[in-house]
């Protein structure tokens, strides 16, 4: 009984460890340039400011404000991920996994806030997910050819 309980606890911990490692490995994928910058500027996203505040200035975490900023950015980017230059209008499997990872990290951020633990690491992980989404959208938009399509043509294809 005790062995089974130990196996259960350790296996669950290892399951989440491997899930997180896979997500972090995906997030480590390098892009040849910062495709996310035009997306950030066009949509007035705030996650780079959050990342800079936490990383560079080592500012105290304004939990409620940062959470709101990250959540709003996530909503905007997840919408764009589905609809910007995406003919299927669906998430890919990789996107699904990262969306799940975002929600899990956000949940653990809330728990850490309640327990008054370090909040910077999960916030930085959330910003890295958003940056990855921005890069994916930027790359997709960059490689799409819109030169021959007028606005009315585009609207007719919807």
């Amino acid at each position: 009984m005790l062995v089974a309980a130990l196996i259960l606890i350790l296996s669950i911990a290892m399951f989440f460890f491997y899930l997180q490692t896979i997500c972090l490995k995906i997030l480590r994928q390098e892009f040849d340039r910062d495709y996310f910058l035009p997306i950030v500027n066009a949509n007035r996203l705030e996650f780079p400011a959050v990342q800079r505040a936490v990383e560079e200035f080592d500012a105290p975490v304004d939990y409620h404000r940062f959470c709101m900023m990250l959540k709003c950015d996530f909503l905007a980017l997840s919408y764009l991920l589905k609809n910007a230059g995406n003919e299927s209008h669906r998430y890919s499997t990789r996107d699904w996994l990262l969306v799940l990872y975002f929600h899990l990290t956000y949940f653990f951020l809330q728990i850490r806030h309640l327990l008054r633990m370090d909040e910077k690491t999960p916030i930085l992980r959330l910003t890295s997910v958003l940056k990855f989404f921005g890069n994916v959208i930027g790359l997709r938009v960059n490689s799409a050819h819109y030169r021959d399509i007028s606005a009315s043509d585009y609207l007719l294809t919807l």
Binding site: I7, S11, I12, M14, F15, F17, Y18, L19, T21, I22
Partner: peptide, 9 residues
């Protein structure tokens, strides 16, 4: 790891 951890748990 995912394949082993899930069924073991």
């Amino acid at each position: 790891g995912i394949e082993f951890a899930g069924p073991a748990a």
